[in-house]
Amino acid sequence: MTDTTTTLDQETRHQAAPGFERAEMPPAIRPATERDPLRARIEDFSFYYSNGFQAIKHVDMPILDRKITAIIGPSGCGKSTLLRSLNRMHDLYPGNRYEGKVILEPEGENLIGPDADPVLVRLRVGMVFQKPNPFPKSIYENVAAGLRVRGIKKRAVIDEAVESALRRAAIWDEVKDKLHGSAYDLSGGQQQRLCIARGLAPNPEILLLDEPTSALDPIATAKVEDLVQELSETVTIVIVTHNMQQASRISHRTAFMYLGEAMEFGETNQIFTNPRHPRTENYITGRYG
């Protein structure tokens, strides 16, 4: 079985994928429904850490507009590295290097191009981290931080944006009476939803979630999952998770990564019920990971 798949891959490797300029994209990671509008395209993307280690190898992947794209794969496969590339977090540490393109649609701007300013990229692509990391400030100031960075000073505008973001993050009712209390007084799950609100407040074009529930208990996890699904109606979401059930529950598209390569990309349903690549199958059936 392994043999036939490999041969098939190689045979079709040079077939042009509709909607993409790159001809050598393997069929396994071709977007399942090219008709869906794209928010971003990752094209022949590679990433090297400062020690020379190539953590991402020639990845191609579409990011669908207002859909949830999940990236799964065993530890060390590069899924978080790929996610953190999308808003240039690797630029914070010297010596890291990107290759290829991350095109933000519809403008067609290359986020990792030489002219792209990492700070401006991060204004458009927000991020929620693995461990809740609220700032040592009040709940209100946490959510307002992203607005203040953008030079918004009008109290009324900030008030409204803070409330709207907290409502979208489904935490308004829990915090509306203590907006000016410390964010550290919230539970871990509440803190993570606060961090999601903080990421939403400036209305990013894409919101990246890096294993957002790995530090949370099952009840808090369920709340965050519900929230992410609701949010996908209004914002494009890319989520990295080591929890396959989570990916299958909430995402519309799933990418499976292995040793820095995107092995397979497709509709979540297809990936989990009928994986094309044997490595994907091994992973989702729990043979490794």
Binding site: M89, L92, V119, L120, G199, P202
Partner: peptide
Amino acid sequence: REGGYGLGM
């Protein structure tokens, strides 16, 4: 710090 950078600071 990363949280701050992630917001575009």
